[in-house]
Write a protein that binds this DNA or RNA. Structure first.
Lengths: 159, 159
DNA sequence: GGTATAATGGCGAAGGAAGGTCAAGAAAGG
DNA sequence: CCTTTCTTGACCTTCCTTCGCCATTATACC
C-alpha cells in the first residue's frame, strides 16, 4: 500500500498548515510528530533539514532534555527568495575585500539596503577581518564570506 | 500529566518577575522557593547557575546558616556607559555558543532586540560557525565573537 | 566566651527525558 | 540501470530533576 505522497511531503504540509494558523511561529515536540505520523523521530529531522532551510526563509531551533521542543519560525519578510539566493551566489564560498565592497555598492544601487547599512556592514567586515589577521589568508576570505552572509541575512531579512 | 514548560523555566520566570517588581535586586530563601515549587532545594541552584549568569548580566550572592539567603542582582550598564559598550564587554574576545545564547536571551529580555532578531542572529551564529568547523576550536570562539559583534552592531545600530 | 545544635545553602553524581547524527537500505524518478 | 530522495534504526549529546552528603552560620546553653 503506497501513499499518494511521500511521508516527508505530508509532514511538511502539516507543518506548513500549522505555521499558517499560528502566524509564522510554532513549537512542536519531535516525538509527538513522529507518533502522529507513525514514523521514527529522525524522520522529522529529515523533513526539517530538507524543507525548512534558511534559503526558503525558515529558522529552526530546538532544545533537548525534559520538555524539549522544536521551534520553526518563518522569517518575515520572507527574504525574497530569488533576491537572497542571488546574494548567496554572489558571495560564494570565499570573498575578497574588494569583491565584498563592490557587492555592497551594488546592493545599495539596487535599493536593497541603504547607504547607512552598507557603511556599517563594510566597517564591521573590515574591522573584524583584521581582528583575525593572524589567521591564514585562505581562512580570512572564508571568514569574510561567512560574516557577509550573516550580516546580509539580518539586514535583508528585515531584522 | 506533563507540564508544558520545564520546572526550571517556571522558576526562572518567577524570579525575573520578582526582579522586575523589585527594581533589579531580590533576596529569597532557597528552601522557600523549593517549597513554593514543590521541588528539591538544589533545583534552585540549577536554575541559578544556568539562568542567572554573569553573561546574562546577573550577580548571585548567598549566605548559609541560620537566616541564610540568596540575593540576585541585575547588573545594569553604568549610566555613562552606552548599551553598545556594555554589549561589547559581555562578548569579550571570544565567546562560546552557550554564552552567546545567554547574552541574546538577556538582550531580548531587556527589550534591546526583539525575539525575531535574536532567532535570526542565533541561527546565523550557529550556521556560520559550523561552516568553519574544520577550524581549531579556539578560533571558532574568536570567530563567533567577531560574528556576534558584527550582527549586533547592525541590529543595535552600534559601531 | 566556648560549644552544641539547628537552620540554611552548596556540590556532585545518577537517572530520566527530550532531541541529534550518521549510515545503510529501500523507493522513486530519469 | 543509475542517481536522487526517502525511511529506518542504533547510538550520542544535551538538559532537567532528584538525592545524599557536606559546609557554613546563627543561636541557645553552659
Amino acid at each position: 500500500m503506497r501513499e499518494t505522497r511521500a511521508l516527508a511531503d505530508r509532514i511538511e504540509a502539516y507543518l506548513l498548515r500549522l505555521l499558517d494558523q499560528a502566524a509564522g511561529m510554532i513549537e512542536v515536540r519531535r516525538c509527538d510528530l513522529a507518533e502522529h505520523f507513525s514514523c521514527v523521530p529522525s524522520q522529522i529531522n529529515y523533513v526539517l533539514t530538507t524543507r525548512f532551510t534558511t534559503d526558503r526563509g525558515y529558522v529552526v531551533e530546538s532544545r533537548r532534555g525534559g520538555s524539549g521542543y522544536i521551534r520553526i519560525v518563518r522569517v518575515e519578510p520572507a527574504p525574497a527568495e530569488s533576491r537572497w539566493s542571488w546574494v548567496l551566489q554572489q558571495i560564494g564560498e570565499t570573498i575578497s575585500r574588494r569583491r565584498a565592497d563592490s557587492l555592497l555598492a551594488e546592493l545599495v544601487r539596487r535599493g536593497w539596503i541603504n547607504e547607512r547599512q552598507a557603511i556599517v556592514t563594510r566597517h564591521m567586515l573590515e574591522r573584524e577581518t583584521t581582528s583575525l589577521r593572524d589567521l591564514e589568508p585562505e581562512w580570512q576570505d572564508l571568514f569574510r564570506a561567512a560574516l557577509l552572509r550573516s550580516l546580509l541575512a539580518v539586514v535583508l531579512g528585515g531584522a
